[in-house]
Every structure is written in structure tokens, then in C-alpha cells.
């Protein structure tokens, strides 16, 4: 009887431990129906024009952010590290700033230097075309222009599983 009791206690412990200890995270979430990404034309800090449809045939990461948003700041360095790997495979990364001006973003880049384009959506018209309700939110768009993955909040963009999922779209 004691043996059986010990066995039950052991199983109880294991279940409890598994629920507490399992912390693996899913890097990207699949977007159902894979809708076509809304096209946009925005300018970066160097006044270079970026039209989403011009990147047709390439994987595009679109990230919506703002300088005052703590998680947005937190993920920028890892996004930049990932970009160094991804750009070699033709992946495009566009970080769309919501509602701020050139000076604010330019000053911000002194503390958070990044090598991918920072686009300005001053009047928040582009973000309204996407189902975003909080910052940061990122979308991964496949070479055919469909939104295939979504991230709300930050991720470690250098995560191997995450990088592989993006590169597999190529």
C-alpha cells in the first residue's frame, strides 16, 4: 500500500514540476489564412523610399515600434544581429516607427544603432492597415506577399528556431 502511495506522490510531483519548469517559448505564431500584406510606401531616415511591393519575391520582416516603447528598445539589438545573418539570404527587415518625427528617431539611434531601415509612419496610416493593437508587433511576409507569421511583444531574434522558420520561407 505504501509503495502505491509513494508512486502516486511521485506522479503528482512530476506533473507539478513539469507545469512549473517547462518554459520553452514558441518563437513565431502562424497567421491563419495567410492574408496578403497591405502595400505601403514609406521613407526611411535617409529619405529613401521603401515600397513593400518592390520587395516581392523576398521574405520581409515588418516590425512596428516607437522610441518610447521599452520592449521595442529591448529587441532592437537582437533584431540587428539577426539582420546581419538574414540579409545575406535576401531577407528584408523594415522597422516602422509609429507617430514620431525624424529628429526623435535620429537622436534615438545614437543609443540604439541599427543597420536595417527605420521607416517613418508619422500619421499612423500604415499601422492602421495591419491588425496591430499594441507595440511592438512584427509580421513575417513570404516572397509571395502573404503574412505567414506574427509576433506580439519581443522575441530573441537570434533564436535558431526563429531564424530557421524565416529562412525556410525563402
Amino acid at each position: 500500500m505504501m509503495k502505491r502511495l509513494r508512486h502516486i506522490l511521485y506522479i503528482t510531483f512530476l506533473i507539478g514540476f513539469a507545469q512549473i519548469g517547462y518554459t520553452e517559448t514558441e518563437p513565431l505564431h502562424i497567421v491563419n489564412d495567410k492574408p496578403l500584406a497591405a502595400d505601403f510606401t514609406l521613407y526611411d531616415l535617409d529619405e529613401k523610399q521603401h515600397k513593400l511591393s518592390d520587395y516581392h519575391g523576398r521574405v520581409v520582416i515588418v516590425n512596428f515600434w516607437a522610441t518610447w516603447c521599452p520592449p521595442c528598445r529591448f529587441e532592437l539589438p537582437s533584431m540587428d544581429q539577426a539582420y546581419q545573418i538574414l540579409k545575406q539570404q535576401g531577407v528584408v527587415m523594415l522597422a516602422i516607427n509609429v507617430g514620431e518625427d525624424e529628429d526623435t528617431i535620429f537622436n534615438f539611434t545614437a543609443d540604439y544603432p541599427v543597420t536595417f531601415p527605420l521607416l517613418l509612419d508619422k500619421d499612423a496610416k500604415v499601422i492602421k492597415q495591419y491588425p496591430v493593437v499594441g507595440l511592438p508587433t512584427s509580421y513575417i511576409i513570404d516572397p509571395q506577399g502573404h503574412i505567414v507569421y506574427r509576433v506580439i511583444g519581443t522575441r530573441d531574434w537570434t533564436d535558431e528556431k526563429l531564424l530557421k522558420a524565416i529562412l525556410d520561407l525563402n
Binding site: E26, A66, W68, C69, G99, E100, A124, G134, I152, G153
Partner: peptide, 23 residues
């Protein structure tokens, strides 16, 4: 208005594992 809107926590949200927002 834009700065204020995005500074606040979204009124409604749907999170999958690892998703989160500040606001």
C-alpha cells in the same frame, strides 16, 4: 493623439504563448 493611443494598453488583445504588451 497617436502617441497617446499607442502608449495605452490595448483595450482588447489576444495573446498566444510568449506574446505580451506593455502599456
Amino acid at each position: 493623439k497617436i502617441a497617446f493611443e499607442w502608449s495605452l494598453l490595448p483595450t482588447r488583445q489576444r495573446y498566444q504563448p510568449a506574446d505580451y504588451n506593455w502599456g
